[in-house]
Design a binder for these strands. Structure first.
Lengths: 204, 204
DNA sequence: CGACACATGTAACACGTTACATGATTTG
DNA sequence: CAAATCATGTAACGTGTTACATGTGTCG
């Protein structure tokens, strides 16, 4: 629902045409999240289907304009007012990967962590470099400020991820002996159950 | 691609049937990401379509088993080896929302930040409470360790988000006067261009 | 002239997700 | 017996994403 609302927000500033929306979207978020042009048109079609936007004639240059509707403005206001749900967050692939790795003794989990950490830190450095550039010029336009914030979000996230990975490694080392050798093959995996019994299918 | 690979990882430990997979998936990730049962079956169908799993007869109790194939194992190994891409991260809804809010003067961006922060912090507290419980019992099984790691990932992320929100607020306050009054309506938004000219559609 | 940016779309697919149908088995 | 859990699926929809088709205008 990001593109949808993003486009809606752009249209709230006045009628726009497809190609223009892509351009503005990208200049708001920096080139961080390139937006395929085709997607603008499909998204616009869906927004129109839901009566959040309507075709609004043409530009001086013949561009097909779209305008936000009242319903669209309402939806947009609600979107801004409604916090992004972090209580049922989207499944994070990395978290799932590590959770699965923990449960699979044959996987070298430290290698997984190490590879990810290298990647994450490199990404963080790239973002930091971009941020330095962005600050150097001094963010003056709204677009530049917006991009700076996005960049910083990426940096904060990457940093948190790196720290989490360190934490995982430390925790796994600490717990290595308390697990480790037990429960190595499939059939007997459901033998011991303490509180997670409710999560497990009965064996009959 | 999280569920797909998650199920594959579970199947790597031996043949499983659908319902069982959901149960095991959930006990690995804690109840953090409830998995609709139907989704297991659709995902299994797609995995079978791609020859990553095959039907493997029945259980003693008549459950329809699936087994991972060599191709599936290869795919799984590659998945573990390949870091999750953080250089072209999935569009983060919150980042987009703030980027759009910055560009829309009529939006009360501080209210948006404040609402989000409350939500995020509350989520963080919930997770922290769960973590305390998890640690209290002492994580012994692999499942419990996995869940603990997932929980901590959520906590780390939420914390980073909260800090980023604070940072945004501070930055916006600092930049308030240097922007603020300029560039308030749509038509003239494209007048001043420094480096972001390349991002903007030409006006003709 | 040829390459490239501008500009508008359509078709097709992937994954995630929910709702529904259906029945067996267990348990209070 | 009724409700809940176990168990297997199907149908349908939503968003995100890519590939393709097509044409205009511009610039070196």
């Amino acid at each position: 629902m990001s593109i949808r609302h993003g486009l809606l927000a752009l249209l709230d500033r006045g009628p726009r045409y497809g190609y223009q929306l892509r351009t503005e979207f990208e200049s708001r978020t920096g080139a961080t999240w390139p937006l395929n042009v085709g997607q603008v048109y499909t998204t616009l079609a869906r927004l129109e289907r839901d009566s959040l936007v309507v075709p609004a004639g043409e530009d001086d240059s013949g561009h097909a304009l779209y305008a936000i509707t009242d319903k669209g403005r309402t939806e947009l206001r609600e979107w801004f007012a409604r916090p992004v749900d972090r209580k049922s967050p989207p499944r994070d692939e990395l978290a799932i990967k590590l959770a699965m790795a923990v449960g699979s003794p044959e996987v070298d989990i430290r290698a997984v962590i190490q590879a990810q950490r290298l990647h994450t830190i490199r990404a963080m450095q790239d973002y930091t470099r971009l941020k330095a550039q962005a600050i150097e010029t001094g963010p003056t336009t709204r677009d530049e400020v917006a991009w700076l914030l996005v960049l910083e979000q990426l940096i904060f996230s990457a940093e948190a991820e790196a720290r989490w990975l360190d934490h995982c490694e430390a925790r796994l080392v600490r717990l290595a002996e308390s697990i480790g050798q037990a429960d190595d093959d499939a059939p007997k995996r459901q033998a011991d159950s303490t509180d997670s019994a409710t999560h497990r299918p009965a064996r009959r």
